[in-house]
Nucleic acid binder design. Structure first.
Lengths: 221, 221, 221, 221
DNA sequence: AATGAATGAGGCTTCATTCAT
DNA sequence: GATGAATGAAGCCTCATTCAT
């Protein structure tokens, strides 16, 4: 997309992407430690050596994958939020968007929740990711306070709480024996979170339709 | 049963415990997969072989540790909650207790939040643990609803949300470069959660000091 | 049964024997390498430490067991042979006796055939055992030749051949999926071996009844 | 299939073979259980890990080795037998061939006779091997009977007896302190076995020299 | 760019043996 | 005499990484 000429250049692109896709599939089931380079190679239909031409380390693959995937998700959220003028609505929509993307793509959710717990230095990556979303939410909440839409509170802690709530709901759903529809939890979750920051009961009652469903491909191309 | 004296009898007991303590320390930094039996052996100051006299498997050690530790924590919580008649107060105190225990014992918190790595079946263990706490909270909330202290809501989702919020606040604190005092987050967290279930503003304002700080030993003897 | 007096002295006896019995049972299934001291201890209902009070080494146990068991077998054979005046009959009866003992006690046979193959230095033990029987047979054959009952031949090689034949027949039977009766092979085996040393056809035809069946206890007490 | 040149293509082949050769040497002294993967690696001058690229398991190596080696030997025998029209001669030549191969290659003999250790399932392998040879002999004997060259007998038992005799003679020779020439035992062995199935004395007397000596390389290249 | 064989540092587990009690 | 906890040397196998081609 960024380069459209010289063959070799695009070749590189293709392989990197292919490998990342394979890695996504592989890491998605099994987590970081339990996924061998061979698994990635098999999933990407490339040789082990080939992988090491494009990435220096297994860890590097994982890190890049996390970053890339997060980028896509954040992009999605920002696009969804863009059209909303009201900051509280923004926060709401952000939440809904994440929920929906995950709802449609268990595998992606798994990458974020399961693979992230792969000890030493991955926590960092996972953390950065959580941080990103918390900051997003925090900015909306700050805006809301400055507009006096909600009373002043510690938005740092609040954003963490919101994200944690979302995170746990999804994680629970991922682990469930026979998971119901993740979307079903949305109304309750929404009400709880809005109420927690002091949004007026009437506003909450007038619950909005969740944002349009996300369209991440289940098997990322 | 056959011996009631001190040395030999406790010897067995002692080593098991010693190993468990070593395992606690070891698993605590590094998670399951990144902790080698050697690490546990070193921490427990016992030989690798010695461990296998008491436990059949690395996994067995981990499982027992999870169970044991959770038991202690739950015991702590139930003790703290016992004297509270009001269900909402109970939930509040439960939250505070967990927060405090963790606040005083980063390592224990780590076991609960980081150790869930090592694919399949450990997630299950971690999950069971989360579940236990969520259920505890849920029972208090159900009680509160039946007493009309708070309006009816989906307590299942709510308990998950509460736990998730707590979880994330602690996790964030664990990861922070230079962590502040975990207790400082408590007032905000408390207010958010109580508000989220519709507790009246006045009640919240009259917020109590958290229960006495827990006394888990940082380095389990 | 054998002792009725002094405790300590007989105790030693008792334990050694008990251990040897346990070892017999244990080695009998699994062979030397696959049998752990723990297995022997369990079978003998004694502690691991207890075993090492009586025997210096796992190997020592095995060796003694081989020797002891062989002694019993040789004793059996000599007893059966004693009443036979004719050397060829002696050889014949010796063969029959061994066959019968094994037929009645697969486990004992196993000890001789399976456990003996436990590498390094056990071959020696097994070998000594084979040797013993071969010598026995050889002596009978030599006698027969000196009496001109059979033509002169290399009795050394012949005794080895006889024993090998017997050995293989038993081994085959031990390994068989659903073994028939070992005794059924006796007539053919007998005819083959007698013929091989030039015993007259008439003598062979007048086949004798196999010696009385051996009475080794299946589970050595 | 994709490459037909020399180096890379044969590389794979070469290493497999190299490993097998190393395994042969290693197993040959020590048997299955007493041979460590490290021993094989050392003998094959390859790293431990390298072995696991070609074989999934120590056991797999052993099994393949047994099969391969047996194939070579059987091939040898069948080639030697091919030119003989008379079934008794065939059996005779088969016997002689095995004896000669072993005579020239103690190590190979060892693999066949000593390696059967290591409990359950290896016995099976060894057994299958013995079986193969016994069947070969049996077929010759059956033929001889159907041609009335020898009187009818139980060829099953007979083939087992023949093989056992051969086996023991070789084993004895392998174990001997200062072994004589294995070939020296041949005339006696031959006479015994032929006589055992009722071959006429004149025929036996006209005994032929054993077939040309086999040419298995002592130390497989 | 890519392949796939090879490496070697661990990791988990077993087990003969020792030793304090 | 006996117990059973403890030791430590192997043993088998995995896997991230390197490297010749």
């Amino acid at each position: 997309m960024r380069r459209q000429r010289s063959q070799p250049a695009d070749h590189g692109r293709a392989s990197r992407e292919t490998i990342l896709d394979g890695a996504f599939q592989a890491f998605t089931k099994g987590g970081y430690r339990d996924t061998a380079i061979d698994d990635i190679a098999a999933a990407a239909e490339i040789s082990k050596g080939g992988i090491y031409f494009h990435f220096p380390t297994k860890e590097a693959i994982f890190r890049e994958l996390m970053r890339t995937t997060a980028d896509k998700l954040v992009g999605k959220v920002e696009a969804a939020v863009a059209s909303e003028p009201d900051p509280i609505r923004k926060a709401e929509v952000a939440l809904a968007t994440v929920l929906e993307v995950f709802a449609g793509h268990r595998t992606m959710a798994r990458l974020f929740f399961e693979a992230g717990s792969g000890g030493r230095g991955f926590q960092a990556e996972t953390n950065a990711l959580h941080e990103r979303f918390a900051c997003l939410i925090q900015s909306y909440l700050d805006e809301a306070i400055s507009q006096s839409t909600i009373p002043p509170i510690d938005t740092r802690v609040t954003s963490v709480v919101w994200f944690g709530a979302l995170d746990e709901v999804v994680a629970r759903w991922l682990q469930a024996e026979r998971p119901g529809r993740l979307e079903d939890a949305y109304p309750t979750l929404r009400a709880l979170l809005l109420r927690s920051v002091g949004v007026a009961a009437e506003t909450i009652a007038a619950g909005p339709a969740p944002a349009s469903l996300a369209t991440f491909p289940e098997q990322p191309k």
